[in-house]
Amino acid sequence: MDNVSFTVNENEIVAVVGESGCGKSALALSIMQLHNKQRTKIEGAIRYRDSDLVALNEAQMNKLRGKDLGMIFQESLTALNPLMTVGRQIEENLDYHTDLTKKAKKARTMELLAKVGIPLPEFTYKQYPHELSGGMRQRSMISMAIACNPSVIIADEPTTALDVTIQAQILDLLKSIQKKTHMGIILITHDLGVVAEIADRIVVMYAGQVVEMGTVLRIFKNPRHPYTRSLMNSIPSAATGQDRLHVIEGAVPSITRMPRQGCRFKDRISWIPDNTHENSPELHEVASDHWVRCSCYKHFYFQGRKEKR
């Protein structure tokens, strides 16, 4: 990850979009300060209200994690402890951040399970993760993350492993919870459909950098960066018919071969002249709350195909 900056406001859903290896999961982990400290170098600041998360020590961070900052992980089967009941795993959160009595914690857990739409909370409380369906597991994962009414939720591919109908339910659930608690949500996903469905703002990442960001309505209507435009043209959807999809030339550079200078997307749009790229590409505000990296977007066109809008 290199030079990534963005803000999340109260009651807002910011989607971080990119393909595997673009650094979006590393971003999520570093916000939660869950990355391997020995193998990671972090520069810059992650500000939450008055504190800088990067500067906090482990004990201070533990006070925020699970209380102010909640996280929802992707694969809910591996992300839950297989030997612990679902109820206990939710309660654990309350153990460390509240001084409720045992009884009150249990009652609160039931309430949480009911809140995320689990039909029989008393029953599910005693169940183990493997006994639940994928959708139900993801719901209990959400109830775990919101147990202490966090102000920020980071959801890392929360619906990727789920069926479409369940995905729609989970997204609606997140929205409805937000309506009540006004939390800010960072939604990490590779699915532009999900972004269009739920997010307010979008951050598009490529090879560890933000290449475009702004409001969802604006960027979906008028994407500027070549990567964003290419991505949108490679999605098969109801609207595409059966024409060939757009294929981005080449492949995402691996971390070790990441170009340190110049536009990181340059090699994948080789037909665009070299001099249209900046030497050290910066984010430019092209409209209010719409940022694009590098100047190559001004000259970008699709080779031999009509751009789908």
Partner: peptide, 13 residues
């Protein structure tokens, strides 16, 4: 394992 990360994300020491 993933669930250890989940446990840490709850702020467990």
């Amino acid at each position: 394992r993933d669930f250890i990360r989940t446990a840490r994300s709850k702020g467990i020491p």
